[in-house]
Design a protein around this nucleic acid. Structure first.
Length: 668
RNA sequence: GCGCCCUUAGCUCAAUUGGAUAGAGCGUCUGGCUACGGACCAGGAGGCUGGGGGUUCGAGUCCUCCAGGGCGCGCCA
C-alpha cells in the first residue's frame, strides 16, 4: 500500500501543539483540501483550539507553522495558513513519488501481520434460509459481507467467514409440506429431482404459502413437521435435510459465481442436536437476565429479561421467550447458543466435514455430528474468536440486540471480553416498473411509490442466478461487439467478469442504511458509475503496456524499469512541477488516500466509502488517460513519468478492485 | 403506543463524522481525437440540503419541535 502521510502529519501537529501551547490533544482531524492550491492535506486544529484557548486561530496557526518549519517532517515540503486558520501541508512530490516507486517492488508480497487466534475475527454473512433460490436481497448481504471480509483481511487480520444455515425452521418445513402434500414426493424422489432445484422450491414455496392460508389442517401438519425437523427424526426430517442440503449447495454455487466463499457453514440442526443450546441455557441460567416463568402469561417458559435495558424501553412485552413451554428453543435462543460458541463461551462440540471444494484452492467446511461419515473434530480450527461482525438486514436489529445482551451478560460473568457487531443494512426492493416487467402485480396505489417490497413467500423477487445470466449475456454481447476477433470462450469469460463487476459494484455503492430500489435497467447499465466503468479504467491501463510491448518489443517490466532509471530520485522533484505535473499529481494524491479510506470503511462499516473511492480513482485515471497520451509523447522524460504513473495506477487500482471482489479483465 | 431508519439537482445517490464555493452518475443541451479502444473525455443548465426554532467562529451533518415515507416490537424464523 502507498504510504499515507496523514498519520505522520497528524503526529507532527500533535507535537507542535504540545510545544507551542503545552496542550495535549488527540489525533487532530486531517482533511483533504477542497482545491489543489490549498495543498495536499488540511488541518483545522487551530480553529478548534483557538476557541478553547480563547485565541485568534490565525495567530495560533502562525505559531504552529513556525514550529513545524523549524522541525521538518519527511515528505512535507512546506506549510501554509489559509482561510480562517487552516494549516495546509504541501508534500515533497519527489520524495513521495520515490516512495511510491518503492512500493512497486514489494506490492505483491506485502507485509501482512501474522495471523493468530487472538486477532481472529468472524464475519457471518449470507445465512439464507435453505428453502428456495437466492434473490437480489441476499446478494446485497453476501456482497457486503464478502467485501467486509476482504477489507478486514487486507489489514492483516485472520478472518473466518461463516454462513449460518437455518435448516430446522418453518421455512424448510413449508417446503417439506409442499413436496409431501402437494407434489406427493418422498425423500428419495426429491433427492432425484433435476436441477435447478432451488427454482423448483421457489415456486413450490409460494404454492404452499397460499395453501397454508386458512387451512388449519395443513397448519397443524406444519407444526408436526417442525417438531420432526427439530428432533431430527422421522421421514420429514430426512426430507428436510435433503432439501436444506440441496438448496445450500445451490446457494454456494450462486455465490461462487460472484467470487464469494465461506470457510464454514454451521447448521442450526447441529446446534440443536449437539445440545449446544442445553449447555448454553445452563450457563445463562446463572445470569440474572434469565429466569424461569412460573405462572402468568409465560408459564413454563425460560425468559430473558430485557426491561430497563437501553433500547428496550416501553415495549409492550418487555421480556423475551427463550424456551417455549413445550421445551423447544426459540430461534433467538439457538442463535445465542451459536454465538456463544462463536466467541469461545462454549466448547467446540462440532465435528466438521469438507462440504464444497472449489478448484483445489478453497474448502468450505460444514458442521456435523461427531461420528457421522466423513466428519472429524478439528479442535481450535473454527469459532473461538473474540470479535466478529454479523451481516444481517436491519429488520433483525431487535434480535441482534438480544443476542448482544446475552453475550454481554455472559462475557461479564466469565471475564472474557467479546466484541459483537451487527453490520446492519437496509433491504432491497424493486422499482414499480421492474416489478411490472417481472410480472409482479402492482396495485394502483403502489404505482407512484418509489419501490415495491419483495416477498419470498409470494415469489416476488429477482432471482440471483437469473440476474447473473442476463448480465453475463449482456456483457458478452458488448465484448463481442468491440472485439469481433475474439473466440467464443474468451468472450464468455469476459462477459462473466463484467457481470460480476457490474453486480458487485451496484450492490455496494449505496450506503448500507439506504433502501435500494432495484431497477433492472439501471443494473444492466455499464456506463457512468458502474463496475464496468472501473474495469474499463483498469483495462485501459493494461492496454497501454500491451501496446508498448507490441510497438517496442519490450515487456512491461522492461518499460517500467527504463522509465525508472530515467527518472533518478533526485531529479523527480523538478519533473513534478508545472501544469501537467499538477494534474498527474492529483492522481497520486488520490492513490495515497487508500489507507485512510480503508480505515474509514472499517470504522464506519460503510463499504460504499471504498466503492466511491475506487470510482474516483477510475475517473482521475480516465482524465489522465485522455489528456496525456503516452505512445505519442516524444519528450522522453514526460513519457517516462506518464508510464510510471500509469503503472502505479494499474498496480494499486487492481488491488482496490480485488478488495471489492471486482475482477480485472485484460480487455473488454 | 414505543423504538430505529430515511427525506440533498428532474431521477438515483455522495459529502472525509462540525469545516473552505454542497459534489457524482443518469437524463437533458453543446462540443471532442485517423485510437494507448468512445463502456471515454470536456463544458452548460439544473440546489432555501422536507419545514420551523436552537447550539457556535462555522450546520446537509448536533439538539428540539413539526410534516411525509419505511421498518421493527410473536411460545415465527
Amino acid at each position: 500500500m502507498i504510504v499515507d502521510l496523514r498519520r505522520v502529519v497528524a503526529a507532527a501537529v500533535v507535537k507542535a501543539v504540545a510545544e507551542v501551547t503545552s496542550e495535549t490533544i488527540d489525533i487532530p482531524s486531517v482533511e483533504d483540501p477542497p482545491r489543489p492550491e490549498f495543498g495536499d492535506l488540511a488541518i483545522p486544529v487551530a480553529l478548534e483550539l483557538g476557541r478553547s484557548l480563547g485565541r485568534p486561530p490565525r495567530q495560533l496557526a502562525e505559531e504552529l507553522i513556525e514550529w513545524l518549519e523549524a522541525n521538518p517532517v519527511a515528505g512535507v515540503s512546506r506549510w501554509q495558513i489559509a482561510g480562517p486558520g487552516y494549516l495546509n501541508a504541501f508534500f515533497d512530490r519527489g520524495w513521495v513519488f520515490d516512495q511510491i516507486l518503492g512500493t512497486l517492488d514489494s506490492v505483491s508480497d506485502e507485509q501482512r501481520l501474522p495471523a493468530s487466534v487472538d486477532t481472529k475475527q468472524i464475519v457471518e454473512h449470507t445465512s439464507i434460509n435453505p428453502n428456495k433460490a437466492a434473490h437480489i436481497g441476499h446478494l446485497r448481504n453476501a456482497c457486503l459481507g464478502d467485501t467486509l471480509a476482504r477489507v478486514v483481511r487486507s489489514q492483516g487480520i485472520d478472518v473466518e467467514v461463516q454462513n449460518y444455515i437455518d435448516d430446522t425452521g418453518v421455512q424448510v418445513a413449508d417446503v417439506v409440506l409442499g413436496f409431501t402434500e402437494i407434489r406427493g414426493l418422498d425423500a428419495e424422489a426429491v433427492a432425484a429431482l433435476p436441477d435447478p432445484f432451488d427454482y423448483a422450491c421457489w415456486d413450490l414455496y409460494t404454492e404452499v404459502t397460499e395453501l397454508l392460508e386458512n387451512n388449519e389442517v395443513l397448519q397443524a401438519r406444519r407444526r408436526e413437521v417442525l417438531l420432526s425437523l427439530e428432533r431430527q427424526s422421522g421421514p420429514e426430517a430426512e426430507l428436510g435435510a435433503i432439501i436444506a442440503d440441496r438448496i445450500t449447495r445451490c446457494h454456494i454455487a450462486t455465490m461462487e459465481r460472484l467470487g464469494i466463499r465461506y470457510d464454514l457453514l454451521v447448521r442450526e440442526g447441529d446446534v440443536v442436536g449437539l445440545e449446544l443450546w442445553a449447555t448454553a441455557l445452563e450457563r445463562l441460567s446463572t445470569s440474572d437476565r434469565v429466569y424461569f416463568a412460573d405462572g402468568g402469561k409465560h408459564d413454563g417458559c425460560w425468559m430473558m429479561r430485557l426491561e430497563g435495558l437501553p433500547g428496550f424501553e416501553d415495549l409492550e412485552e418487555p421480556n423475551k421467550v427463550l424456551v417455549r413451554s413445550n421445551g423447544a428453543a426459540t430461534y433467538v435462543a439457538k442463535d445465542i447458543a451459536y454465538h456463544m460458541w462463536k466467541y469461545g463461551l462454549l466448547d467446540d462440540v462440532f465435528a466438521y466435514e469438507s462440504y464444497a471444494e472449489i478448484l483445489d484452492t478453497h474448502v468450505a467446511y460444514r458442521s456435523a455430528r461427531p461420528g457421522s461419515a466423513n466428519a472429524r473434530s478439528m479442535p481450535g480450527r473454527f469459532g473461538g474468536a473474540r470479535s466478529g461482525f454479523n451481516v444481517i438486514d436491519v429488520r433483525q436489529s431487535y434480535l441482534q440486540q438480544i443476542v448482544g445482551v446475552a453475550l454481554t451478560a455472559l462475557s461479564r460473568d466469565s471475564e472474557i471480553e467479546v466484541s459483537h457487531t451487527h453490520f446492519s443494512y437496509e433491504m432491497v426492493a424493486l422499482t414499480p416498473r421492474t416489478a411490472e416487467t417481472l410480472g409482479i402485480p402492482v396495485a394502483k396505489d403502489d404505482q407512484c411509490k418509489a419501490y415495491i417490497e419483495m416477498s419470498g413467500r409470494r415469489g416476488y423477487g429477482v432471482k440471483a442466478d437469473d440476474l447473473l445470466d442476463v448480465l453475463e449475456k449482456r456483457g458478452a454481447t458488448e465484448v463481442a461487439k468491440r472485439n469481433p476477433a475474439l473466440d467464443a470462450a474468451e468472450v464468455e469469460e469476459l462477459g462473466r467478469q463484467i457481470a460480476v463487476g457490474a453486480l458487485r459494484y451496484f450492490l455496494v455503492k449505496f450506503s448500507r442504511n439506504k433502501v435500494i430500489a432495484f431497477d433492472l435497467e439501471e443494473a444492466l447499465s455499464f456506463e457512468g458509475e458502474t463496475g464496468p466503468y472501473l474495469q474499463y479504467a483498469a483495462v485501459r491501463a493494461h492496454s497501454i503496456f500491451a501496446k508498448l510491448e507490441e510497438r517496442w518489443g519490450k515487456s512491461e517490466e522492461e518499460v517500467v524499469g527504463e522509465a525508472r532509471s530515467m527518472l533518478v530520485a533526485g531529479r523527480l522533484g523538478s519533473e513534478l512541477v508545472g501544469e501537467e505535473a499538477s494534474e498527474l499529481w492529483n492522481l497520486i494524491v488520490q492513490l495515497m488516500r487508500l489507507e485512510y479510506v480503508i480505515e474509514q470503511t472499517v470504522t464506519n462499516l460503510e463499504i460504499s466509502t471504498l466503492a466511491k473511492h475506487a470510482f474516483g480513482l477510475a475517473q482521475a485515471f480516465n482524465h489522465f488517460y485522455h489528456r496525456y497520451p503516452i505512445l505519442k509523447e516524444e519528450n522522453e522524460t514526460k513519457r517516462a513519468l506518464r508510464i510510471l504513473l500509469a503503472y502505479v495506477f494499474r498496480v494499486h487500482f487492481s488491488e482496490v478492485l480485488s478488495l471489492l471482489g471486482i475482477p480485472v479483465p485484460e480487455r473488454m
